[in-house]
Simulated scan of single mutants.
Amino acid sequence: MFPVRRQRPSRALSPYVKAYEERVQRLDRTVVLRPLPARTEQFLEFYLADRYRVREIASGAVETAPDAVLVGMQTYRRVDIVLAGTLRLFTIQFTPTGFSGLFGAATAALTDQAFAARDVLGREVAEVSERLEAAPDFASGVAVAEAWLLGRVPTGDPDPIAWAARRMTTLHGGVRVADLARAVALGERQFERRFTRAVGVSPKRYARVLRFREALRLKTEGLEPGWAGVAQAAGYVDQAHMIHEFQALAGDTPERLIAAMAPARETVVPGDGNLQSRRSSPA
């Protein structure tokens, strides 16, 4: 198990930031491969000690991650990461529309991509990284991130797309696009355009990845012992439909993916601040 400290943001940042996380682990000579199947999260990650190596699935090429990386939503298993050495990571996980809300960027350009954060956000990322590296503990790191992001909170009315994306996330994709559009008083086509700009993918594709991640969660947390039960609970037509989606979004069968993810499985541990309760989670 890899320990993860997690803290929720302040109230002012809660529409934009899902959580702050810290991972500290000394692996010495152990090398761990972590598969990265499709996921909805957009995040900014700072490597404050040794950095991950990233293995591209298509080519097999291995590169070292930059010291701060901005990662968009991933709709398929594009890379795996190689963990080794001494790890100290600080992660800012954004809500579905949080990055676009704070930085005014259309997130479609981030989808299925990862960029050196400095190339996208400028010199200030390096300054934040230096302050995080100097922070004596997780709570101090959170304070650094909060001070930086609070200055970017926009004024004006909340974006209705943010509510719609949260609703879809809460229901693990189990909601009709037409119903969401109607709830925020938008035509379906207008809703889809605005959703894609704010979230980075279409509503239907977002729901597809949410359903897949829910199936992973149900299995890794032991909430559904059998795959047929997982398929039903996650909202798939049947088990064959679920297996097809695992192949498309993770490049593997459900059984093999779960086995491959096991060595790098994470567990949330108690820490400073308003932390969530302890629980295991898929990577």
Score class of each variant (00 low, 15 high):
Arg278Glu: 13
Phe99Glu: 11
Thr169Lys: 14
Ala198Phe: 02
Val199Gln: 00
Arg152Pro: 13
Glu45Asn: 12
Ala262Leu: 12
Thr97Leu: 09
Lys219Tyr: 08
Ala178Gln: 05
Gln42Tyr: 00
Pro154Lys: 06
Ala260Phe: 04
Arg88Gly: 02
Ala65Ile: 07
Gly271Ser: 14
Val62Ile: 15
Phe103Met: 14
Ser10Phe: 05
Ala114Ile: 04
Pro263Tyr: 07
Tyr206Lys: 06
Pro158Gln: 10
Phe43Asp: 11
Ala58Val: 13
Phe46Thr: 02
Leu257Trp: 11
Asp252Arg: 13
Val54Ala: 11
Ala207Gln: 09
Arg176Lys: 03
Thr95Pro: 03
Arg182Thr: 06
Pro270Met: 04
Glu56Phe: 07
Ala38Ile: 10
Glu192Lys: 10
Leu150Gly: 08
Ala108Ser: 13
Ala162His: 07
Gln276Pro: 10
Ala38Tyr: 05
Gly141Asp: 00
Arg131His: 10
Asp238Ile: 00
Glu63Pro: 00
Ile81His: 13
Val82Ala: 08
Gln42Trp: 07
Ala49Val: 04
Leu44Ser: 12
Met242Arg: 01
Lys204Arg: 07
Glu22Trp: 04
Arg205His: 03
Phe195Leu: 04
Glu224Ile: 02
Arg208Trp: 00
Pro263Gly: 06
Asp157Phe: 08
Ser281Asp: 10
Leu70His: 03
Arg194Cys: 03
Asp238Glu: 01
Gly187Cys: 05
Arg118Trp: 08
Ser280Trp: 03
Glu130Thr: 02
Glu255Asn: 12
Pro35Cys: 14
Phe99Cys: 09
Ser10Glu: 10
Arg182Asp: 05
Gly174Thr: 01
Arg55Met: 14
Arg193Ala: 12
Arg205Pro: 00
Asp272Leu: 11
Val199Ser: 04
Ala165Phe: 10
Ala198Lys: 13
Met1Tyr: 09
